[in-house]
Write a protein that binds this DNA or RNA. Structure first.
Lengths: 202, 202
DNA sequence: GTCTATAAGGCGATAGAC
DNA sequence: GTCTATCGCCTTATAGAC
């Protein structure tokens, strides 16, 4: 009896995840307002009304996707940077953070690109919850960069705000052109951090 | 009589432009599908039906905005780069192109950010027309970069495709944080090109 | 040129059968 | 859990008055 209940629970959970995956894929491609619940349901061979057994509203559905996308990036980057040996160089920290950022961005691409690309179109309540996570993430980068500049590893003339936004802008843009057949995620991160660290002039 | 006709024509033209400006502002903030014709009309103290005197459809309206945004960037960048003295250095060319890109991006910001941010949500027919312009622009950059690398000004190890996408990604991201009160457009371009050209390590 | 009125269909969401 | 059926609202677009 216990087993039966747990089996049912797992099936519900699995359906929930399929809905999230499919919604994320459609939201990232067509936008939040460009995707109808009917579109999501039909991609799952379901009817729109059935979605309401799993989610209270379209707004709650996209909020969950946004949180998964952002938390995934934050956790991946923190875990990887913290796993570096004590006394790693600034370049090693930046490179590891960039690799983590790209890995999370591209491997859960539908969630993160929904979070990044369609942020402005989401309902206000959703945007506010997202902003908290987003700020926390940006503050991590800010801290690393300030410490590195104070240590003298980054030129004193570097405007850290513009730098941070440029680096993250470049990394996020990868979503638009990355394809699994080509360069690996780590190779792309190395190339991009290389530009910013050493420059391209010969 | 001729004068009267020309006056009327100018008024129509002016209304058309106000519709374009207002639509671009709303599309860039709320997305294409998140903006109703009623929203546009009410921002102009008009009724939705009246818009159809000036435009055949919502699709044609956004297409025109897309073309204005992209053509504005292309023309600004070409004009400024061509105005450079013969024999300008590679860095000077890149800097001038970046300044032109940012100037067009930020000064006609609603048009360009509609073009850049909401591209994926536009009707297929609109996307196809946009792709032609977009490809032409990217090819300009490609050409400059290949020439510069062949001259030996850019490290042979630099992957030009990743570089181009990173630089444009960083520049485009400026739309999300630029505010007229702070650093000037030229200062921002100089900072960003500086990162990519010289690097930030001390 | 802009209005009112309305057509024709899509939308999110709910109720109740199964 | 998913279905069918439907509500009330919103959407783009059109027709005809002014």
């Amino acid at each position: 009896m216990l087993k039966e209940k747990s089996t049912q629970t797992n099936k519900v959970k699995k359906t929930r995840e399929r809905i999230l995956d499919t919604s994320a894929a459609l939201f990232s491609k067509q936008g939040y307002n460009g995707t109808a619940l009917r579109d999501i349901a039909s991609a799952l061979d379901m009817k729109a009304g059935s979605l309401y057994y799993h989610f209270d509203s379209k707004e709650q559905l996209v909020l969950e996707i946004l949180k998964i996308g952002l938390e995934n990036i934050i956790n991946t980057v923190i875990t990887r940077v913290n796993a570096l040996p004590e006394g790693s160089s600034t370049k090693e920290v930046l490179l590891e953070a960039a690799k983590g950022h790209l890995a999370a961005l591209l491997e859960k691409g539908d969630y993160t690109s929904t979070s990044i690309r369609n942020y402005g179109q989401m309902p206000d309540a959703v945007q506010e919850e997202g902003r908290v996570l987003r700020d926390r993430y940006e503050n991590m980068w800010r801290k690393w960069l300030v410490e590195a500049q104070n240590k003298g590893d980054i030129k004193a003339s570097t405007d850290l705000k513009i730098f941070r936004l440029s680096l993250l802008g470049a990394l996020n843009r990868t979503l638009a052109w990355y394809s699994p057949g080509g360069k690996s995620i780590d190779e792309i991160a190395e190339a991009q951090v290389g530009f910013f660290w050493d420059g391209i002039k010969s």
